[in-house]
Design a protein around this nucleic acid. Structure first.
Lengths: 335, 335
DNA sequence: CTGAAAGCGCTTACAG
DNA sequence: CTGAAAGCGCTTACAG
């Protein structure tokens, strides 16, 4: 039961003032080497550690940053968090985690807490519901309160904040080209998110890569049953030799339909999905995927925030950092 | 740019003392209704929020708890975290997340930080490396510093702390019986963790359920190549009709070998794995699994910690809470 | 009913 | 070189 020792207690034991102890521990040149020595020795003996709450109060900061995550079961976000955490450790920041569960309501509550001075800055991936309803007032209120804000992953929104995202269009442009270069002409798209920003961008990349002689083949729907029948139509009738899936749902649906219909992947159908490494690797066959480098997204976001906190950027002028994706080849794109 | 207003500023604007403002906002009976009214009105107007750092310093607490997670990409832990977070919100606690990456070294660093007074209590799942090396000093030092500690998930360790775990033995006892009751006699085990606590318990459950007439068939190894060949031997040669896998690695290996050898699951081989819902559902075929209810583990752990913090439990007397598992049937156990 | 004072544990400009 | 004082923003026992 070593109970924590304070500066005051240390001072009493040493018969010096609190200020002297504090300065000695901070290697202030004001203090004589002899005193400094004595102080440090006793501090070490008692394993003195400054009370972080007191230090923070004095410094008028919290030493913590808030991270808002829409859905932690999504391993993309889990890995973003790990990138944030690693970077935060290096900068000696504590990470407070909030999970919005993709709910606007919850996100509002969280932002409300956050404006009360719990954290020095905020990293957020905006909930889907929020994007759908385009209700961003709670985020603007963070800005109003001068809480530095970095938006990651879903950055297609007009909020004055630093942003870290992914080049969605380029990723699908590259993926489409990968097939074209190998002589595959019938390339299809499956999407459950064709109506939202990132979905549109991915599809745009696909369209750009196709030349006029290649027919566009799309299976898009937000309705699972409808999407299933559209994908089924595309792949069971041999309309496409390769399928690009813009999201988790369509990827899983495609692999499942192939499995059920005994369509051999990659022999009869090549597949690229937008899913996390964790899932992609363990499917049978494993599914080639577009790696978004979530850990890097997280650490970049954290670095941006820290530079912002340290005043390294001009105020009212925001950074946008785009992390390049990589096409990761597993079994489903074997030639 | 609403900058935060303080009690002092509020007091000045109202021409009353800081103490009066503070009391009014806390509905102290000492304050006249009229004054209380005035104070609250102005506070609301300026959207006054007490500075949490100052409040915490005054209360000698931090208002935060630390959560140590071995590996956030493992969706089991991600979901535990979400259970913790949800419960913490209800109790108005902030959750600071630390990721040990299964590293003893990192875990030590984290515990060292944690003893400096950053948090009121700690929830930890101990890293694998730590368990392997049986080095628990850093955890004992948390106890020494009187920081309430709850150990979750990997609780087979002699540390004086509250614990929340899973009934590993029972889960496999039930799973084995599930097959026995349906007339399956040749039931095998695959394990990459047969040498560690939870692995042993699971295997023990299996052994208990088997009667003397049932032969034990085990494929156990920590070496992936060896484990693969052992599992292969078990399932490719029809030695078992059902296979129980004690962990993620053996489950994935078993599904993959079945896929490669074109062994039909569940027709020729039934499988039960110890993997997370997120993965189990998306495999083809989907794999029946033992659900450990991670969200509940998290919220239970958080509740235990909070009761401990509130002094609801006798000191030196520790709670151990076991969350029952459920056998979730997906395609791989269809009869 | 109101306010001055002490104190949570620290840091730092200032006086001596 | 050392220490008293002020202050970070709050709460609360106490005096009036």
């Amino acid at each position: 039961m070593k109970s924590k020792i304070t500066l005051k207690e240390l001072a009493k034991l040493l018969n010096v003032s609190v200020s002297t102890v504090s300065k000695a521990l901070h290697d202030s040149p004001e203090i004589s080497p002899k005193t400094a020595e004595r102080v440090k020795e006793l501090a070490k003996l008692h394993n003195y550690r400054p009370n972080p709450v007191a230090v923070n109060l004095k410094r008028s900061k919290t030493g913590t940053i808030g991270v808002v995550i829409p859905n932690i079961s999504n391993s993309f976000f889990a890995r973003v968090l790990s990138g944030i955490e690693a970077q935060a450790q290096e900068q000696n920041q504590q990470v407070i985690t909030y999970i919005s569960n993709e709910s606007l309501e919850r996100e509002k509550q969280i932002c409300d807490m956050l404006t009360s001075g719990l954290v020095d800055g905020v990293l957020i991936a905006i909930a889907e519901e929020t994007h759908k309803k385009k209700e961003y007032d709670h985020l603007f209120s963070l800005v109003d309160y001068d809480i530095p804000l970095v938006i990651y992953d879903r950055i297609n929104v007009e909020i004055p904040a630093d942003k870290v995202g992914v080049d969605d269009e380029q990723s699908f442009y590259d993926a489409t080209n990968y097939f074209l270069e190998r002589g595959i002409k019938n390339i299809g798209i499956a999407s459950a998110i064709h109506h939202v920003g990132i979905g549109k961008l991915r599809i745009k990349g696909y369209e750009k890569a196709l030349s006029s002689e290649n027919e566009q083949q799309m299976a898009c729907s937000t309705d699972p049953a409808l999407l299933r029948s559209k994908i089924h139509n595309l792949i069971a009738n041999n309309k496409v030799e390769a399928l690009l899936c813009t999201d988790f749902e369509s990827t899983i649906l495609a692999t499942r339909i192939a499995y059920e219909e005994k369509i051999k992947v990659p022999e009869q159908l090549k597949l690229i999905g937008y899913i996390s490494k964790e899932i992609a690797e363990y499917l049978t066959p494993s599914i080639s995927y577009i790696e978004q480098h979530p850990v890097e997204i997280g650490s970049t976001a954290m670095q941006l925030l820290n530079n912002r906190l340290e005043g390294k950027y001009a105020p009212e002028q925001f950074k946008e950092s785009i992390i390049a994706t990589s096409l990761m080849h597993l079994e489903s794109t074997k030639f």
